[in-house]
């Protein structure tokens, strides 16, 4: 990190970036909550990796599958006039993760951590957990979005 760079505040950044992305793209308020998702419901998870000279990380964005339909519907249905299919849901969820990742990486870059990133990947299923190497710091965030809960995991190694 550059000595004259502002300190990277993950908590503050996530609490600003996630509601901004969700409201701008979906007109849904994402409110921080302590309640996490029910692990036994089907979910769609987008993953983006990023890395630079002195930092590596992964961002995992988890939506209930039902909310994936809402997202794709809001972003695509007007044009399609039908329910979104899995590919379209994956694309919409991946793009939201891309925007959130972009917001975090911009703050990291301004704090002196330049990073490149991977395109989003998607995992679907239920009851799974994600583990990183022991030297990664993992932070969980939960947001209430209408009737659903969006979960964000940030895995960081500085």
């Amino acid at each position: 990190m550059k000595s004259d760079s502002p300190k990277f505040d993950l908590q503050k950044t996530v609490l600003r970036v996630v509601p901004n992305v969700i409201f701008t793209m979906l007109e849904i308020r994402a409110l921080p909550t302590q309640t996490s998702r029910d692990p036994e419901i089907n979910r769609v998870s987008a993953i983006i990796g990023f890395g630079g000279d002195t930092i590596n990380g992964m961002i995992y964005l988890h939506f209930p599958e039902s909310f994936g339909h809402v997202i794709a519907g809001k972003l695509l249905d007007v044009e399609l006039g039908r329910a979104a299919n899995d590919r379209e849901i994956n694309d919409a969820v991946g793009e939201l993760c891309n925007m959130i990742s972009g917001g975090l990486r911009a703050v990291l870059a301004d704090a002196g951590f330049d990073t490149g990133m991977s395109p989003p990947s998607i995992i679907r299923g239920k009851g799974f957990t994600i583990e990183s190497q022991p030297d990664f710091e993992i932070t969980h965030f939960h947001f209430a979005c209408d009737q659903d809960v969006l979960d964000l995991e940030v895995h960081l190694k500085l």
């Binding site: 925007m99 972009g102 990486r105």
Partner: peptide
């Protein structure tokens, strides 16, 4: 039209000659 918004990235791309820069998310 991109999610890339770090100051140095934007400055580098601006030098290549773009008309404008819109950061995702957008309306």
């Amino acid at each position: 039209l991109t999610a890339e918004s770090g100051r140095e990235n934007v400055a580098y791309i601006a030098k290549l000659g773009v008309r404008d820069y819109l950061v995702k998310p957008f309306k």
